[in-house]
Nucleic acid binder design. Structure first.
Length: 435
RNA sequence: GGAGAGGUGGCAGAGUGGUCGAAUGUACCUGACUCGAAAUCAGGCGUAGGUAUAUGCCUACCGUGGGUUCGAAUCCCACCCUCUCCGCCA
């Protein structure tokens, strides 16, 4: 959520910056709502002040044993008007809030201006495109031939966009998550957390998934009390529960930065992506991800983002996978983000780079919704900056290993750093399951 | 699932219809004392918003949402959460 003070003081400036990301801010409507709000709020507060002082007078007069019918009649009238005007005020503030919650974050000044993915800027390439002296297979063919990847059974159990992993592949999937967690906790200073996968609407609102992106989520209805219904939502990323740990908190300055890593499943409805990436593990309703989340001092957030990006890159480097880092342009960054770097891993069968991590600085955008603050040097509460990134998406990393580490006979050379997590196994072959 | 207790400022903890935005303690800040510190003493110290610049004035906030009332932290209703005991359970 943007700071309404900034909209009030520099509406044109905000509109101009949002325009770079293709968002049209309705400045006329905002201006109208603000003018009305101002008038109604001033009137409301006047009436409230009158009611308060008159009520005090009644109390004092009663204490002296005087008659209060005249003044009570007058206050009753004030009360009548208040009742009506308060409804108006609530409606106006609701409309403003709704408008505010619908505004995306302002891109940082350094973000390249562009319309779409095509305008993203490549920052660096690490490693080299692997060369094969045989024709490469894609991960689906490799996985199925190994006997470890089964989409038909998954479709029977659940439907499209689910998968069943078996044997060595299932184990490698688990090994990857363990390896990532260990690296981030042992070498990068993150605290591992285990968090709920079902969260309430407040948490989804806090990180920006609600109210705008409800169709992307799986909602789990839940009966509360006699008649009330309150929803749970399946998390689309660990960012949601982990970032919400600091909702409504004031973190002591000396505890910053907070650095958390969580391995969780992620659930996405993929509404609107029908037909995209239907083959294989790339786009699933349920997938695993190791997520890095930091809550930092505003002065430190861009340095912290650079570090976090590096932490994610280390995983690919240790696995020996070729990748590139891309800076998303204004037209491609996510709703809540001020700056985003994507890490894209090389997939030989697709002959292209595919996103495997997305690292963003949200500045105070999430913190403002969350009321996530720290006590600054002056002792005053101040909004934190939140940053996060995948470190990495486990399923897509598995895809990358299958395709990049494949051998002519269809076996997979297991990256050295994973071997200890797989009982010393060096090669994944058909028929070796149960190991 | 059953029974009970409770949710108030950073923390602890008073407060059952009017001068309560809230006692008191503690933490924190400033000053005095001191070579310095501790102790002691004095003062200050919530958040958000409005107005617009006035060391000003005003509003809202005592788990959440409704209600009663001229007036609600306080009374009524619903819900949420925490704790204790019993039952069930991985």
């Amino acid at each position: 959520m943007l700071d309404i003070q900034v909209l009030r003081s520099d509406l044109a400036g905000v509109a101009a910056r949002l325009a770079t990301r293709g968002f049209v801010l309705d400045t006329v409507r905002f201006g109208e709502l603000e003018t009305q709000r101002k008038a109604i709020q001033v009137r409301t507060q006047e009436l409230q002040a009158r009611r308060n002082s008159s009520s005090k007078l009644i109390g004092q007069a009663r204490a002296r044993g005087e008659d209060t019918t005249a003044i009570m009649a007058e206050v009753a009238q004030v009360g009548e008007e208040l009742k009506q005007i308060e409804v108006q005020l609530a409606r106006l503030q609701g409309a403003l809030q709704e408008m505010l919650e619908g505004l995306p974050n302002m891109p940082h000044d350094s973000v390249p201006v562009g319309k779409s993915e095509a305008d993203n800027v490549e920052v660096r390439r690490i490693g080299a495109v692997p060369v094969f002296d045989f024709s490469v297979k894609d991960h689906v063919e490799l996985g199925e031939k190994l006997g470890g990847l089964d989409f038909e059974t998954a479709a029977k159990i659940s439907g499209a966009r689910f998968s069943v992993l078996k044997g060595g592949l299932a184990r490698m999937h688990r090994a990857l998550a363990q390896f990532m967690l260990d690296t981030h906790t042992d070498s990068h200073g993150y605290t591992e957390v285990y968090v709920p996968y079902l969260v309430n609407a407040d948490s989804m609102r806090g990180t920006g998934q609600l109210p705008k992106f409800e169709e992307d989520l799986f909602r789990v209805p839940r009966q509360m009390g006699e008649s009330g219904e309150q929803n749970f939502y399946l998390i689309p990323t660990a960012e949601v529960p982990v970032t919400n740990m600091v909702r409504d908190e004031i973190v002591p300055l000396e505890q910053l930065p907070l650095k958390f890593v969580a391995h969780t499943p992620c659930f996405r409805s993929e509404a609107g992506s029908a037909g995209r990436d239907t083959r294989g593990l790339i786009r699933q309703h349920q997938f695993e991800k190791v997520e890095l989340v930091q809550m930092v001092h505003p002065d430190e957030s861009y340095a912290a983002l650079a570090q976090l990006l590096g932490h994610a890159e280390v995983i690919l480097q240790k696995l020996g996978l070729h990748y590139r880092v891309v800076r998303l342009c204004t037209g491609d960054i996510g709703f809540s983000s001020a700056t985003t770097y994507d890490i894209e891993v090389w997939l030989p069968a697709q002959n292209t780079y595919r996103e495997i991590s997305s690292c963003s600085n949200f500045e105070a955008f999430q913190a403002r919704r969350l009321q996530a603050r720290f006590r600054n040097a002056a002792g005053k509460p101040e909004l934190l900056h939140t940053i996060n990134g995948s470190g990495l998406a486990v399923g897509r990393t598995l895809v990358a290993i299958l395709e990049n580490c494949q051998q002519a006979d269809g076996s997979i050379a297991i990256p050295e750093v994973l071997q200890s997590y797989m009982g010393g196994m060096k090669v994944l072959r058909a028929g070796l399951f149960g190991q």
